[in-house]
Nucleic acid binder design. Structure first.
Lengths: 201, 201
DNA sequence: GTCTATAGGCAGATAGAC
DNA sequence: GTCTATCTGCCTATAGAC
């Protein structure tokens, strides 16, 4: 019915993942069916099973691709943004761009549904959060050593506060359809980290 | 099968709401069925429809009861805890007690599933967050006037940061089955509000 | 790779007896 | 209020033709 325009050069498996990703981020893993993807792509559900034999397999592939894309973007930030404050802002903007598409973080959504997920998907969700936490922790430690940042507790706790804070801000902002709620929270979470004591020009 | 022990004095509708509430908080509104409630209570799904004609009606009743109970607890905090810092700690403990039962906030879960919910449930979810925000905003403003609290931005923004921060901390802590992740985030969110400049004995 | 056809199960919901 | 019986529809998944 509401089929998207054909993209001749794109692999069918990629188009399936794109459609499924959007559906999970908006409706949850338990809130969509193979029929939803099929109607959007103009193929049958039987064809979907050729590419992804089970919904669990599709879900696992979804998280894996999402995590890879995300960590690639983190590497790109490291390579292009010199300051830690700038990197943290770029990190928050990754979340903001998801919200702008009227979606929730894929793994935030799956964290809510965690109890109902197959084991392989659970492990992949944890892996996503572990990698977020590791990247942030490293950046925060480095920023504090450099004197660019200042915060009271441990870098890990600060990293977890940021991940949870951004996920929660997205979660609550979405029903209100108000991106400024997220933006305000992101600013507050990151502003307090700036070291205002020392001289960094 | 896994039927809970009979509670002779408790209304059936109450027992239905209790079972459904637990299921939604653990598995989501799209992650449970009438059959789940029926087997837990030892009655049939047809009986459930006598008490709640549709799943949407059950969901709406669920949120309404949850919100009422929550606001009652907020009133009890106001009546029994003198300091604003103490009230905020008690507020965070409401969330912590949910997590201790291996559950997610009912409305946090429904916020994730928001796009799939019937209209009446959506409005009730928004109402829950509005009431949280209003109570916090009032407390924060009062605390700042009294000199007990100190924070840079507006009270509303600070309130929204706290709601989102606690919801997100719960969301991420649950897959890890690690309550300390939530506790650490809660402490960090509230600690920074203390006014360390003036004299409050 | 994609299709038709279909299996087998579970979903929410209703009618009507007790 | 709770039951049995049943409806209709949707779900994931498979077999086998093209």
């Amino acid at each position: 019915m509401a089929r998207t325009r054909q993209q001749p050069g794109v692999e069918t498996s990629t188009r399936i993942l794109d459609a499924a990703e959007k559906l999970v981020q908006r409706r949850g893993f338990n809130g969509f069916s193979y029929a939803d993807i099929a109607s959007e792509l103009g193929i049958t559900t039987a064809s979907l099973h050729y590419h992804f034999p089970s919904k669990a397999a599709l879900g696992q592939a979804l998280i894996k691709r999402y995590t890879t894309r995300f960590t690639d973007e983190l590497s790109a930030i490291d390579a292009s943004v010199p300051t830690i404050v700038g990197r943290l802002e770029a990190y928050a903007n990754l979340y903001a761009s998801v919200l702008e598409q009227e979606r929730f973080c894929l793994c935030g959504m799956l964290a809510a549904e965690y109890d109902t997920l197959p084991e392989t998907m659970r492990d992949a969700v944890i892996d996503f959060f572990d990698k977020n936490e590791a990247w942030l922790t490293h950046g925060l430690e480095f920023g504090r050593e450099q004197g660019e940042l200042a915060f009271a507790g441990s870098a890990v706790d600060e990293a977890r506060l940021i991940v949870g804070g951004l996920e929660g801000a997205m979660l609550v902002a979405r029903p209100y359809r108000d991106i400024t709620r997220f933006q305000a929270a992101a600013v507050q979470l990151l502003m307090g980290l700036r070291n205002t004591a020392t001289t960094t020009s």
